[in-house]
Write a protein that binds this DNA or RNA. Structure first.
Lengths: 151, 151
DNA sequence: TCCATATAAGTGTATATACACCTTAATTAA
DNA sequence: TTAATTAAGGTGTATATACACTTATATGGA
């Protein structure tokens, strides 16, 4: 139908990777956030605390790389967590420019307490997608997440 | 390693569907946004204009459903597009509560002019993922986007 | 008719995201 | 040793996202 008017065929738009990624992100994030709401943590916040719990204190830039998150985005995302007392940002030792992010005891506690909620959201999600598709899907997402390095 | 201390095994966290979706979304959105920047449209804005271009004017709620976007999110996303004069929001005919969103001529023009940039971003993306994986990936994303209805 | 309920849409608030630009400190070259 | 460059991090601004709440209109039943 567009062949007459336009040089490009619009029929490919529904296959846009970015559009479908954002749609899926909105739907899935809401699912996790709703289930995790009683824990007091959003999904993104839980991710940040969990990476710190697993990998220990690290510099801002390194943490941003871990999360495939823009450094300035991470800076803003750390603020509510810092205000709640879930993490501390302390001066780096060798390099006076750098700062290190580390979990507090309260942070470890809230992360640990949120785990069962995450587990429930994850279980429902994997059950909905199916185990096989779920594995393949996450694997593909990991590849897609390297776009910023490759392209 | 966590088996001793925690009831739940933390080793599953890297497989979190939500975390990996957000990571991929950030990376892929940036890719599209960078390439589309000369067009003056962000990826999300291009999506909205393209749906309107293809499906014609529609009520706010219907458009939100099309985009799998919260209605209030859409309201905010329409504002810059309206200010730029790319779309109009006019009163609904039968129902005085409803309002209809429709593209202006300027909106059609900017959407059309942005198409080649989108096409380049999409081609690079599909080429990076591979045609086969790309198709499967988008198909899985569509399924994941129905999470909000199913769960 | 009139009131209870349901629906369409907007607003207040808070987090999430990232680009452009700035500051400060470390590093490297002349 | 000093000046240019690079690297770590923050700020200004703008869009993106969604929940709780509000307003206005429609609708259905007593």
């Amino acid at each position: 139908m567009d062949a007459k008017n336009n040089k490009l065929d619009l029929s490919d738009c529904p296959s846009c990777v970015s559009f479908n990624l954002r749609k899926a992100m909105r739907a899935v994030s809401q699912h996790y956030d709703r289930i995790m709401a009683p824990s007091g943590l959003r999904g993104t916040q839980f991710s940040i605390l969990t990476v710190l719990e697993r990998a220990g204190p690290m510099k801002i830039t390194v943490l941003a790389d871990c999360l495939v998150m823009d450094r300035t985005t991470l800076t803003r995302n750390l603020q509510p967590l810092q205000q709640e007392g879930y993490l501390k940002i302390v001066p780096g030792l060798e390099d006076r420019r750098s700062r290190r992010v580390e979990l507090t005891q309260a942070g470890k506690k809230v992360q640990s307490a949120a785990m069962p909620y995450w587990q429930r959201a994850q279980d429902e999600m994997v059950n909905f997608l199916g185990k096989t598709r779920s594995k393949q899907f996450v694997s593909d997402l990991r590849i897609a997440a390297t776009t910023h390095q490759q392209l």
